[in-house]
Amino acid sequence: MPDYALELREVSKSYDEFVAVDRLSLALPTGKVYGLLGPNGAGKTSSLRMMIGITMPDSGEVRVFNQRFHRDQLKRIAYLPEERGFYKRMKLAEHLVLLAELQGVPAHEALRRTTHWCERLELADWMQKKVEELSKGMQQKAQFIGSILHDPDLLILDEPFSGLDPANAVVLKDVLLELKKAGKTILFSTHRMDTVERLCDAICLVNHGRSVLEGDLRSIKARYGKNHVQMEYEGDGEFLQKSELVQSFNNYGNYVEVKLRAGADPQELLRSAVNRVRVSKFELMEPSLEEIFIDVVGKAQTCVTSA
């Protein structure tokens, strides 16, 4: 039997008429980093809340560490909500110690870990300051520290990178990889594809509360095959619109990502391109996650509208 740190089985949740999560299933192998993706309002936060028992699913089952979820397991789970939440008038160190103590860590140990993590995430100078004096980025880091002080085995993070500048994002990414190396399982939600591509082993793409794509990131990409071309060129890219080789393309400004029609020969596209513009880069590749995302979400939306 596979070892899953977290598993959702056909989980549904609705608020009055609104269906937030619709028969969502996903499985998170122990020791992996998992990305929960989806457009705004897709049901990511609602799913996360059910994973830690803040809300209960209307139907379906949440399983944590291969058991049906129960509150005692929270001692092994970290939860980082999307919005920064603090008692603003408390001192940072006091606040973090309180959170650790609420998770069952003894007071002196709580202080030791707080100091350790504040130093690791460059907040040591701020420990005696009131939380309201911290910048948003610092609060985001502090929130993260507060969620992991009890040394959990499973981390559930809602948009952990939001509000962080690139330098701090790197610090956090390093910490996450460190934790992964230590055997922790990490799930985070985001809509930033670049982070997912760099960090995640597996993903689940949700839309309208439903899972539209789930599994190992590499096999998902392989499934789409190498029918994408990334191009950089100088000149008029109008030929792309007319070309019969091209199914669709997406102009990102600095480069263009082209999806080829089934059976089309990329060499032919290169030849026609060289005739019209100055090509400085031409790379045959798997589709980026962003392309897959737009492809899948777009299709789903078409489905919904046609239905």
Partner: peptide
């Protein structure tokens, strides 16, 4: 205040 500052969600991850 706990509601508006969203600290509620943090707390609910550790307490009922």
């Amino acid at each position: 205040e706990e509601k508006t500052s969203r600290v509620m969600e943090v707390m609910l991850a550790c307490v009922t």
